[in-house]
């Protein structure tokens, strides 16, 4: 027998018999798989309302905020738009301090406002309402985005959130609710000449204030 070949054969001999090696590998794989996955009924998970225990659920939070806090409180909290416009023109800083809210620092601040007027025009993007003072404002029906709906009331406290992403997700969900629950009704009923009352969220820049052609995110509208 060739001694070199013999040595190689010896060197390649596994430490454990192959079946035992496979059994160990299988057991290890099974152990990892058992500790990696779990299987549940999807209906149970959905019923529990959470797919990941402990995780923040923006849709649930937004729905609860919308129905339990914002809608009930809005009529009492909202500032009359006509009055606000006069205040902004006479003492801007005082008006911002008294009526606006914002979570972050900066010049962008939000107002929860209410008003009524006559629908004077409708388009794909908005419904134009002319206030009794003669000033036109636009109720957005297409581009509903940003943090106005979340921040305008000042009812959400930033300390409730672990991170800014959760906070931003709440804005996105609230805007989604507005798109689905408020806009369709507004678009269907708003015809030129009809009288309309509304509650909405308004974004204004304190440093560069423009009060012409205001666009309001509608929260509640009624004919």
């Amino acid at each position: 027998m060739n001694p070199t070949t013999d040595r190689r054969k010896m060197a390649r001999k596994p430490l454990l018999p192959r079946p035992l090696l496979y059994a160990i590998e299988l057991a290890l794989f099974g152990f990892i798989a058992y500790n990696s996955l779990y299987i549940r009924k999807l209906s149970d998970i959905k019923a529990a309302g959470t797919a990941a225990a402990g995780a923040f659920q923006a849709p649930q939070y937004a729905r609860s905020f919308w129905t339990s806090k914002l809608l009930p409180a809005a009529p009492g909290m909202a500032t009359d738009l006509g009055t606000l416009l006069i205040s902004l023109k006479t003492d801007k800083d005082k008006a911002f301090a008294a009526h606006s809210h914002a979570m972050g620092i900066g010049n962008i601040r939000y107002f929860l406002i209410k008003g009524e007027g006559t629908v004077t025009a409708t388009s794909d993007n908005d419904v134009t309402v002319t206030l009794p003072t003669g000033e036109p404002i636009h109720l957005a029906t297409e581009f509903v985005f940003g943090n106005a709906a979340r921040d305008a009331s000042g009812l959400i406290n930033i300390t409730e959130f672990d991170n800014t992403t959760d906070l931003n997700n709440v804005s996105a969900e609230l805007n989604d609710i507005i798109r689905k629950q408020v806009i369709p009704g507004l678009k269907a009923s708003a015809k030129p000449g009809t009288k309309l009352s509304f509650i909405g969220a308004l974004e204004l820049n304190q440093a560069h204030l423009h009060t012409n052609d205001l666009t309001v995110i509608p929260i509640r509208t009624a004919l």
Binding site: I32, S36, L37, I39, R40, L42, A51, A52
Partner: peptide, 18 residues
């Protein structure tokens, strides 16, 4: 966060951190 959801089989395959 979301696992794998199989609506047809009404199954939810969840993942642990590992």
């Amino acid at each position: 966060r979301n696992g794998i959801q199989l609506p047809d089989a009404n199954l939810y395959i969840g993942f642990t951190v590992l």
